[in-house]
């Protein structure tokens, strides 16, 4: 048996990407257990929990990424800043 995960052809950027999402989800699960949060209404049209807001933030970020890569030639690190800010905004005020 080959347990080396070579078949998954990992790269450093994708490992960081998947790793950070997994870590954030796990951290939010722990946070939710320690101090449970309520559904609330922010600027988003529906009442949301922190998990909903994270999901919506990441999903919309995917569309921002597609627009960025598909329509512009700007460097990706600017996109990363924008996306992180966007997810934070959704998480805090969404």
């Amino acid at each position: 048996m080959d347990f080396t995960l070579k078949w998954m052809v990992w790269t450093v950027p994708t490992a960081i990407f998947c790793g950070s999402i997994i870590i954030i989800v796990l951290a939010m699960a722990v946070w939710q257990t320690v101090s449970p949060s309520l559904e609330r209404k922010g600027f988003l049209p529906i009442p949301t929990t922190p998990g909903d807001r994270f999901f919506m933030g990441v999903l919309t970020s995917a569309y921002i990424f597609f627009a960025w890569v598909g329509l512009t030639q700007f460097p990706l690190w600017i996109l990363l800043l924008i996306v992180v800010c966007w997810v934070l905004v959704v998480m805090i005020w969404g």
């Binding site: 070579k6 998954m8 052809v9 990407f17």
Partner: peptide
């Protein structure tokens, strides 16, 4: 996650 890995690489064969 494997698909995410594929999407940023040009894969010619195993390894």
């Amino acid at each position: 996650m494997t698909v995410i890995n594929y999407s940023v690489q040009d894969i010619f064969g195993p390894g």
